[in-house]
């Protein structure tokens, strides 16, 4: 399986999220959230509207003010960081698209190549 590199795990501060374009021409970023040693990754694509839309309000600003949830800053949707489930807001009942992270022996993270062409919300 072809992999695309994102970053080293230390480039994501504990308790924060960052967005990475897996390729310069990719349709959507991949969001990586770090809590302690745990990393979760999702497509930067809110499931509220068909096609999915970017969720941050500024580069890398993906969490709500309290840092407890991933948030879509288009209409206040909140998502559980563990599962990607929408827990409040317009896309209640839908979820973020999880991305499989691969980590090498020294902590470099990569994602499957197909995510570079991925934008659409999963129906």
């Amino acid at each position: 399986m072809a992999l695309l590199p994102l970053c080293h795990r230390d480039e994501i501060p504990d308790g924060a999220a960052r967005g990475f374009l897996p390729l310069p021409e990719a349709l959507r970023r991949v969001i990586v959230v770090r809590r302690g040693q745990r990393l979760d990754a999702y497509m930067d694509s809110c499931p509220h509207y068909t096609g999915g839309t970017p969720m941050a309000w500024r580069r890398d600003a993906y969490l709500n003010g309290d840092g407890t949830h991933l948030a879509c800053h288009a209409h206040c949707a909140l998502f559980d960081i563990d599962t990607g489930d929408c827990v409040s807001g317009p896309c209640l009942g839908r979820k973020l698209t999880r991305v499989t992270l691969t980590e090498d022996q020294v902590g470099y993270l990569s994602v499957p190549a197909h995510v570079a062409g991925c934008a659409a919300r999963k129906e």
Binding site: M55, W57, A61
Partner: peptide, 9 residues
Amino acid sequence: YFNSPLGVH
């Protein structure tokens, strides 16, 4: 339209 930390566009 732009996203915002006020949760509206």
